[in-house]
């Protein structure tokens, strides 16, 4: 098993700084969804991780903890994530994306 980044929607949707989306070295990996936060009653949308593209470097964790001071991202073993976003389940919209969360582990 290996580590991937996991973003706490509750904390992220309260601030919505989007710094992690700008500092992730991998393209199309940390994405942003308006629905993920607002539909759950939070003020803003939330960032989320396409775990099939995450290489587990944890730069987003440093940025979230030290630059944004939000402490919203943790590294977690992928088989400990009940549901996560995968590239195949992500839909791009005009100004945001939406993701259908599913178990990231096959079988």
């Amino acid at each position: 098993m290996y580590l991937v980044a996991d973003i706490n929607v509750e904390i992220c949707a309260a601030k919505s700084c989007k710094l992690c989306t700008q500092y992730c070295p991998e393209a199309n990996t940390i994405l942003y969804s308006d629905e993920m936060g607002k539909d759950q009653g939070f003020k803003y949308g939330s960032a989320y991780v396409a775990v099939d593209r995450c290489k587990g470097c944890a730069q987003c964790v440093w940025v979230c903890d030290n630059m944004a001071k939000n402490n919203a991202i943790k590294m977690i073993m992928i088989d400990q994530l009940p549901k996560a976003a995968l590239t195949d389940n992500i839909t791009y919209g005009e100004k945001s994306t939406t993701a259908v969360l599913a178990s990231p582990v096959v079988g």
Binding site: K18, Q22, N28, Y32, R53
Partner: peptide, 14 residues
């Protein structure tokens, strides 16, 4: 712009 990343498909792939 950079402030919009995460909301559009970037040209860089895996």
């Amino acid at each position: 712009s950079v402030s919009q990343v995460g909301s559009f498909k970037e040209v860089l792939e895996e």
